[in-house]
Simulated assay, not measured.
Amino acid sequence: MEPTTSVRVLIVDDHEVVATSLAHVLDAEPDIVTVGVAGSLARARDLVTSTAPDVVLLDHRLPDGDGVQSVGTLRGLRPSVAVVILTASAADHVMVEAIEAGVSGFLSKTRSLGEVTSAVRAAAAGEAVISPEMLARLLPRLGSNGRAGRTTLTDREREVLGLLAEGLTNAAIAERLTVSVHTVRNHVANLSAKLGARSKLEALSIAVREGLLPDR
C-alpha cells in the first residue's frame, strides 16, 4: 500500500546533473516527491512559496548568492520547512553559520543515494541530519554570550537536550531513557518551543548561546 502522504522536496542546486540525479532518485521512492528544482536563490524563493516543500536541499554556493545566508529568508517564507545544506566541502565556520541560521543539517554530495533518501526522511521527521562526530566538533564553535539565559527547562528537558548534543536520534534517546519515542518527541517539542527553535540544531545553538549546555 502506498503512503497517503509524501515528503515534498525542493532541490536548489545550479549543477543540472546533480539536481536532476537527486530528483530522479527521490522520485523513485514511494514516500518522497520532488516538487521543484531551482538553479538560483531567486527561483528557490518563488518555489518555496508556490510548492510548499517539507524539505529543501540547498546548495551552499549559488550563482546569485550564498545558500547559507538565505536560510533565514526561506524559513521566513515557510516556517515549517527543514533546510538541509548540500555541500561538496565546507569549512567549519560555514557550517557553524548554517546551524545558527536554523538548518536541519548537512548532506555531502559524495554521500550514497541511499543516504540521500534517508537524510530527507530524517529531516522531514524533525531529526538533525549531522553525524555525532561533526556535531561534537562544531558545538564548541557556536556563539555563546557567556551568560546564563532566562529560559527555564525541566530536569528532563535538560537531560534530553544533553542527549541531543551527543547526536542521538529520538529513538536512541527513548532507548537511553527507557521511555517511548512519543514522549521524547514531546520533550523535544517543549524545549524547542521554550527556546524559540524550529529545528534540533537551532535548539542546540540557542542552548549554547544561553549557557544551557555544559562546556564540552
Results as ranks from 00 to 15, higher is better:
173 I>S: 09
88 A>R: 01
82 A>P: 03
92 D>Q: 14
151 T>A: 15
98 A>Y: 01
168 L>Q: 06
109 K>F: 14
121 R>S: 02
166 E>R: 07
159 E>S: 07
149 G>M: 04
177 L>Q: 09
207 A>Y: 00
149 G>T: 05
134 M>S: 10
162 G>Y: 08
100 E>R: 15
146 G>C: 09
151 T>E: 10
141 R>S: 08
148 A>V: 12
197 A>F: 07
192 S>H: 01
194 K>H: 11
130 I>L: 13
168 L>I: 02
135 L>V: 04
162 G>C: 08
120 V>R: 06
216 R>W: 11
176 R>S: 14
182 H>I: 09
207 A>G: 07
110 T>I: 12
186 N>G: 08
216 R>P: 00
152 T>I: 12
208 V>W: 03
209 R>W: 01
161 L>P: 00
116 V>Q: 06
168 L>S: 10
196 G>Q: 08
210 E>I: 00
120 V>W: 05
211 G>R: 03
213 L>A: 11
168 L>H: 06
122 A>W: 13
174 A>F: 09
194 K>L: 15
135 L>M: 10
215 D>H: 01
136 A>M: 07
139 L>D: 02
135 L>Y: 06
106 F>A: 02
202 E>A: 12
101 A>Y: 13
172 A>N: 01
91 A>W: 15
136 A>K: 10
139 L>Q: 02
85 I>N: 05
181 V>Q: 10
187 H>M: 01
210 E>M: 06
104 S>K: 09
194 K>I: 07
178 T>E: 12
94 V>Q: 15
88 A>L: 15
141 R>K: 15
177 L>D: 04
98 A>R: 02
187 H>C: 04
92 D>L: 13
137 R>A: 14
140 P>W: 14
93 H>Q: 15
154 T>Y: 06
87 T>R: 07
117 T>I: 09
191 L>D: 04
117 T>K: 14
177 L>N: 02
187 H>P: 00
127 E>V: 05
213 L>F: 05
124 A>I: 03
168 L>F: 01
116 V>A: 10
163 L>W: 07
202 E>T: 00
176 R>G: 05
138 L>N: 05
201 L>P: 03
185 R>M: 11
139 L>I: 12
131 S>Y: 07
145 N>W: 03
143 G>A: 14
119 A>K: 05
110 T>E: 14
108 S>L: 15
96 V>G: 12
205 S>P: 02
149 G>Y: 02
164 L>T: 00
115 E>R: 13
183 T>E: 12
200 K>R: 15
210 E>P: 11
185 R>S: 14
184 V>R: 01
131 S>Q: 08
180 S>Y: 04
212 L>W: 01
137 R>I: 03
213 L>C: 10
162 G>K: 05
214 P>F: 01
122 A>M: 13
206 I>M: 05
80 S>C: 09
98 A>D: 09
211 G>I: 02
188 V>C: 11
111 R>A: 12
109 K>Q: 15
214 P>T: 02
213 L>E: 04
174 A>I: 03
168 L>E: 02
118 S>Q: 13
193 A>R: 13
210 E>Y: 02
129 V>Q: 02
116 V>E: 07
89 S>I: 06
167 G>A: 11
209 R>F: 09
198 R>V: 00
